Simulated assay, not measured.
Amino acid sequence: MANHLHHHDLPDGLSLGPIVAIDCETMGLLPRRDRLCLIQMSAGDGDCHLVQVARDPAPAPNLCRMLADPATLKLFHYGRFDIAALFQTYDVVTAPVWCTKIASRMVRTYTDRHGLKQLVQELLGIDISKYQQQSDWGAADLTPAQLDYAASDVLHLHRLRDELNRRLVREGRQDLAQACFDFLPTRAQLDLLGWADSDVFYHA
């Protein structure tokens, strides 16, 4: 496994394949307030490419092209947050997408533990550390421990998707899950526009 740190954008000519696992680190949990600091990506090959985002983000044409590419599936864990953070920073709609947290909620109804750490432990038998989760991602120089933590959030998503997809098929819920994935970019924009805590479908 190797971490490759880039500044502002992915390098020219880099291809991460047809399915890219993506996660974001921000200064907090409110995308409209807390800036995006780091984007980590993996093709599922054990390597991680990380893009450090400046306080005043520079254009990232290579990254944005990949995020919007209809031929590239973007794989997230809790994509609702990451898609919103990416849209807030780059004004790009990330699609198509697949979310392991949504899939977990739809097939692991025997538990309320749907965090990445729990998923990786149960489905893959791997322990990952979340120690660096609340560290300062806005620092100019990120530590090797921070980079390793960030990488761990994407390195297992391809295998998780395979296992969760088998369970979705087994339970006959793959079409419903796909409809949820298709709606995620819209859900993220509703969050950014102020409807994060209200149900727009609710009749009152």
Rank of each mutant, 00 (worst) to 15 (best):
P70H: 06
R65H: 10
C99G: 02
K101Y: 05
A43Y: 01
A54R: 09
G44T: 06
M27D: 14
P31T: 07
C64K: 02
L67R: 00
D45I: 13
L30V: 15
Y78Q: 05
C64L: 05
G46D: 06
L14M: 09
Q52C: 12
K101M: 15
D82L: 11
Q40H: 07
G17P: 09
M27Q: 15
D45C: 13
C24S: 15
C64T: 12
L29H: 03
T26H: 05
V51R: 06
C24Y: 07
L86Y: 00
V93W: 00
R33E: 11
A21T: 06
Q52F: 07
V92F: 02
M66H: 05
V97W: 04
P96S: 09
D56T: 14
I22F: 02
N62R: 05
L67I: 04
R55N: 11
E25K: 14
A60E: 00
A103P: 12
T89D: 06
L36Q: 05
T89M: 10
A68D: 02
P96H: 00
F76S: 11
L30A: 14
G46V: 14
A58T: 08
I83F: 06
R65Y: 00
P70K: 07
A68H: 01
Y90Q: 01
C37P: 13
W98V: 11
C48W: 02
H77K: 12
L75Y: 06
I83W: 01
T100M: 11
L50M: 15
R80W: 00
D23L: 14
V20Y: 02
A71F: 00
L16F: 06
Y78L: 11
